[in-house]
Design a binder for these strands. Structure first.
Length: 113
DNA sequence: ACCATGACGTTTC
DNA sequence: CGAAACGCCATGG
């Protein structure tokens, strides 16, 4: 392991996602100052799964509220099961009430300076 | 140093 | 309004 500054930022934010809430890759990217590196956030999540870190990657969705990376988990509906276990309603890989359960790191973490 | 890839996002057609 | 293309940028070969 080197010094994954970028990934580390993602982990710090993602690990702070509260129970029963979800966020988007772009939101995290902005929160860490990456902004346009939303793809890298997902990339970091891949590392999370590989290293089994304490980051709830299943609570991170795309801006559409769709479980884009569910096939990166166990390859099945594990991601959906986890979300539903938290009271989140998922249908057709899409989270219902996404706007209501959306957790914005920028606001919640007061990153607006 | 260059090319290819990707758990996204926005713009354009 | 829906689909496609482009952009962005870090990681690996």
């Amino acid at each position: 392991m080197d010094e994954p500054s970028f990934f580390d930022r993602v982990y710090q934010v993602a690990s702070q996602i509260p129970y029963g809430r979800v966020t988007s890759y772009g939101a995290i990217a902005k929160a860490i100052g990456a902004g346009k590196s939303a793809r890298m956030v997902g990339y970091a999540m891949n590392n999370v799964n590989a290293q089994s870190l304490d980051v709830p990657a299943h609570r991170v969705l795309n801006r559409n509220g769709v479980l884009t990376g569910k096939h990166h988990f166990n390859g099945t509906n594990l991601m959906q099961q986890l979300l539903e276990s938290e009271g989140i309603i998922v249908e057709e890989n899409q989270v219902q009430n996404f706007s209501k359960i959306f957790w914005d790191p920028m606001i919640e973490l007061n990153l607006y300076e």
